[in-house]
């Protein structure tokens, strides 16, 4: 179901990598309550902060891009969680009150 648009995001990631960029992929791995994007949704991030796809309705993408840039540096994958139960809820909480866990990894 998500195949088409997710395939486009993954294809872009591969093309950026082939063009010499550093690239990271963020994937929604778990959601709680109402959250705008289901598990399996991708955000592809390039080293110049350009990104494609989505892991929320736009609520946490900014933070995920920051995490992705960090992961490109370290090469170490990372799990990050956003949502109302998070201390950062005030800053980057999901308006819908849901929680989302995102796996961020560098494309090697």
């Amino acid at each position: 179901m998500a195949d088409q648009s997710e395939a486009e995001v993954l294809t872009a990631a591969r093309e950026w990598k082939a063009a010499g960029h550093r690239v990271a992929l963020a994937t929604v791995v778990k959601t709680w309550g109402s959250s705008p994007r289901p598990a399996g949704s991708h955000l592809a991030v390039r080293d110049d902060s350009f990104f494609l796809g989505s892991v929320s309705g736009g609520c946490v993408e900014g933070r995920v891009v920051e995490e992705a840039l960090g992961v490109m540096q370290t090469g170490e994958p990372k799990l990050v969680e956003f949502g109302v139960s998070n201390d950062e809820a005030w800053e980057v909480g999901l308006a819908c009150g849901g929680r989302v866990e995102i796996f961020v990894e560098a494309l090697e």
């Binding site: 195949d3 395939a7 993954l10 294809t11 990631a13 591969r14 990598k17 992929l25 994937t27 791995v29 170490e76 994958p77 799990l79 796996f103 990894e105 560098a106 494309l107 090697e108």
Partner: peptide, 28 residues
């Protein structure tokens, strides 16, 4: 994610072949 893994996923999608990507969320 290794480049080869991504290439294989995209090949499977193009070939309409069902495939599952299994990720160890601790080690990657």
């Amino acid at each position: 994610m290794k480049g080869e893994v991504l290439a294989e996923v995209l090949d499977a999608i193009a070939a309409k072949r069902p495939i599952v990507l299994a990720t160890n969320l601790e080690s990657g």
